[in-house]
Computed example of a mutant assay.
Amino acid sequence: MKTTSIINVGLLGFGSAGRIYHAPFLNAYAGYRLSKVRTTSTSPEIHARELHGHTQVVTTSEAIFDDPEIDLVVVAAPNSLHHSLARQALEAGKHVVVDKPFTLTVAEADELIELAARHQRVLSIYHNRRFSSDFRTVRKVCESGMLGRIVEYEAHFDRFRNSIRAGSWKEDEGPGGGIFYDMGTHLIDQALQLFGLPEAVRADLRVQRTGGQSCDSFEVVLEYPNLKATLKGSMLAKEPFPQFTVFGDQGTFMKYGRDVQDDALRQGVVPHLGPDWGLEPENFWGRLNTQVNGLEINGIVKSELGNFGDFYRNIHGVITAGADLLVLPEEARDVIRVIELAEESSRQRRTLPFER
């Protein structure tokens, strides 16, 4: 446990993940000091306007690993580098946060979990969509019992981008590329949080765009004893689907609209603790149509407040005060296991039992 309240952070990677989803929260909360950022950009100074004056831009990971003042390393590099960079950080005695997906294989995840335990360091994965307004709302509805016994759940994470972004590692056919490792990881983690581990997995992973090399369309079904959870994502969804649809034996809940924090962060809005951060507009609120104690309920459900920064508030509490870790590495490893099974299911075109 760290004895002072300020956590010095080294951020590995300053692409979209590091620049948009990590640095703003690390800069916004007083308990963190973003000391160093490693970027492979040939002109690191271009990022100076987005960083505080005390942040040093470096071009090697070793400049962070070898710095005794760094307490926490955040890995926001391409997916194929997550395992090796996290391993080096743990071996250097640092606490570690890894952007999703945790690793590319369960074996890699297990190695990091064992290494963190051996070095008595905090290891967590940035499953920030647990802290989104839409998922918090769906979770509250599911746990309220107002739908009765839940029998079917469907979640979407869609975009419309019919062209291939040249030079993007996410568009390559290499390991960890494609939208399944990107958007699918969020949907799997959310489903496991709601329903636990499935009995079986079946999946259809495809490349649909002309010239595409990596998965740009997925449908994954998690099978439970009395429940089916369908997770879908597409890069060719020009008309919006509901983000979430939940069917129970007493009613239905449906919600459109993705969490508003994404657009705010991409526009450079600084996260804050005010009442309007993560607040969804009314046209994003979900609709509940159900029956409770014989009474029909058909109306709008106000969205819960979302805040990705709650992840980093928790990490601060874990490191400085011994709080309980909200995103356990074992849970993130289970997400990777579902990904492995989904890829194999799609190749074999059959349902596979869930086995760790």
Rank of each mutant, 00 (worst) to 15 (best):
F65E: 08
L288W: 01
I297L: 13
R209M: 10
E296I: 03
L12I: 11
S35M: 08
Y181G: 09
R87P: 02
R38W: 05
I46V: 15
A264Q: 14
F131M: 05
I20V: 14
M254C: 11
P198D: 07
W285Q: 07
S5P: 15
G177D: 05
T185R: 00
R130T: 11
F308V: 06
H186G: 01
V9S: 05
I179Q: 02
L325G: 10
V106C: 10
D110C: 07
S168R: 02
E355L: 01
V301R: 01
F218A: 09
S144M: 05
E173G: 14
Q348A: 12
F160M: 05
D310G: 03
V73Q: 09
M254A: 08
R266E: 14
T3I: 11
D110K: 11
A63M: 06
T3H: 12
L295N: 11
L295H: 10
P198G: 05
E62A: 07
F25R: 01
F354W: 06
G31V: 06
N162M: 00
F195L: 06
N79P: 04
P240M: 12
Q243Y: 12
Q243F: 11
K36F: 02
N162H: 03
P329S: 11
S345L: 01
E199G: 12
T290G: 07
F311K: 01
H52I: 06
S35Y: 01
I20L: 05
H186S: 03
L231S: 12
T290N: 08
T230F: 08
S346P: 06
L279S: 09
D216L: 05
H82G: 13
T105P: 04
H119L: 02
M146P: 05
D189E: 10
N283L: 05
D110E: 14
G299F: 03
E108Y: 00
M1L: 14
T3F: 07
F308H: 14
E50C: 05
R159N: 12
P24G: 07
D172R: 01
D249I: 01
D172M: 02
P198C: 06
G178F: 04
W277C: 07
T252P: 00
Q56E: 15
D216H: 04
L231Y: 10
G31F: 08
L205W: 10
L72Y: 13
G176S: 06
T3W: 03
I20N: 11
N27A: 12
A332I: 11
R333F: 06
V292N: 08
A89D: 03
C142A: 15
H83V: 07
A109R: 00
P175Q: 07
S345T: 06
D259W: 04
G174P: 01
M235R: 14
V270A: 11
F241M: 12
R337F: 06
L104T: 10
F247E: 15
A48S: 15
D172K: 00
F241R: 13
P329I: 11
N8Q: 13
R87V: 08
K302F: 04
G148Y: 04
A92P: 06
T60P: 02
V269F: 05
D324W: 00
G251A: 09
T252Q: 09
H22C: 03
S133Q: 08
P275A: 07
